[in-house]
Design a protein around this nucleic acid. Structure first.
Lengths: 213, 213
DNA sequence: GAGTGGACTTGATCGAGGTCAAGGTGGGGC
DNA sequence: GCCCCACCTTGACCTCGATCAAGTCCACTC
């Protein structure tokens, strides 16, 4: 069964709401500041959310207080899919972000429209699984950077809205290690780091050689 | 948006095909022996597959020949979702397995029926992500065993159709480590290992205490 | 029965990366 | 301007788990 995702996803600017969701009942756009919660673990689920601008991290806290980030959503992405009646993850804004709440109807027509989006989401999680399966942490970070570049349209100048800690919790490593490997990538000429929240990829083939191992 | 999965998934026996897929065009059940390929990476995608009995591993090989398993499907599970026109993963039988090929129509009605199944799949991947995010490997294996027990109906006697290597590639560790931790769990009284392909969980709360960290 | 091959276990070694600790940097508030 | 705090970097140390290497245990064949 093949589904072609149809939604374009610019990283910057305000993407339009996909045409097939325009008819859905929707709340106004909400603005969230860095770190503020969009929904929390255990809260009732029921809506979908679309990032208009900014970035969102989705994750969970373990009993011991360790945070695990299972995904980032960027402008154009839709998140909030749940199979239970309450959220099993939290969603928080990363930086200043605009989120639109969608309440698509639950009829067959709407499901068909949403189908490619869920499949795309599924694919993304599968890819992330493969990244986390890698034992060498360099490979994980390289894969993260390549993915980020791709999702921002294949540009070499990549925005990093999240902190080193966010990246660390996403890749299952310590934030010190993220910092060290980034440093190594710089020394190896793979990337240039003009400031803390942006990365210029100088040697994409080199990075891919690292993550394709 | 909330979707309740409706499919029951017994681990043993031959589950019926969900009623809403009965109308779909379908091939006869195929029998696969241990290790044989159901589909390969790069092959054209287009069907869904349902495990009738046995087990299936889904994964990918890295360029360096390292295998990464991103999921196991058991009796009742449906796999084969792809967003591209060709498979990005391989699927292989784990032990003697029966697989039914489904070719559900692609109309809105079918999408609506399949929706809860994809969401359930999505949820499973998210949970697996959290497991792989754990730095201590004991926690990963404990989580794997608890999940396995749950998917087999919450019984304490768990079937392990896959090899230690399969588990290792699923958890992102070496197979020696799987063996060693299993040994440790035995010594700690968490499990009893009557034979290589089954595990009896003696102390479920204990195991959960390990994986909930 | 003996021989064979694949999966598993166990031991020994070593390095990647976690943890702890000590600066460095930069933005916001006063 | 100054302080403060959050985030980041870098260093030192040590543990966990990968890797290499035997050795064991079956299931299967002849």
């Amino acid at each position: 069964m093949t589904f072609q995702p149809t939604l374009n996803r610019p990283i910057a600017g305000t993407p339009g709401i996909p045409m097939y969701l325009v008819g859905a009942a929707q709340d106004a756009r909400s603005i969230y500041h860095d770190g503020s919660e969009i929904y929390g673990e255990g809260e009732p689920a029921g809506s979908l959310y679309m990032v208009e601008f900014g970035c969102v991290r989705i994750g969970r806290f373990t009993r011991e207080g360790r945070r695990q980030v299972c995904g980032f959503s960027y402008a154009g992405d839709i998140f909030g899919w749940e199979s239970e009646s309450e959220h099993r993850f939290f969603a928080e804004a990363v930086g200043y972000s605009g989120i639109r709440v969608l309440r698509p109807s639950r009829d067959a027509e709407a499901c068909a429209k949403l189908f490619p989006l869920v499949i795309q989401n599924l694919t993304r999680f599968q890819e992330h699984l493969l990244v986390l399966g890698k034992t060498i942490v360099d490979e994980r970070l390289a894969a993260f950077l390549c993915d980020l570049a791709d999702r921002q349209g294949g540009v070499s100048q990549v925005e990093l809205p999240m902190t080193r800690s966010d990246i660390a919790d996403y890749l299952g490593v310590s934030f010190e290690t993220v910092s060290r490997i980034l440093r190594r990538f710089r020394d190896q000429g793979f990337v240039h780091v003009p400031d803390i929240h942006s990365i210029e990829i100088l040697d994409r083939p080199g990075l891919e050689a690292v993550c394709r191992r």
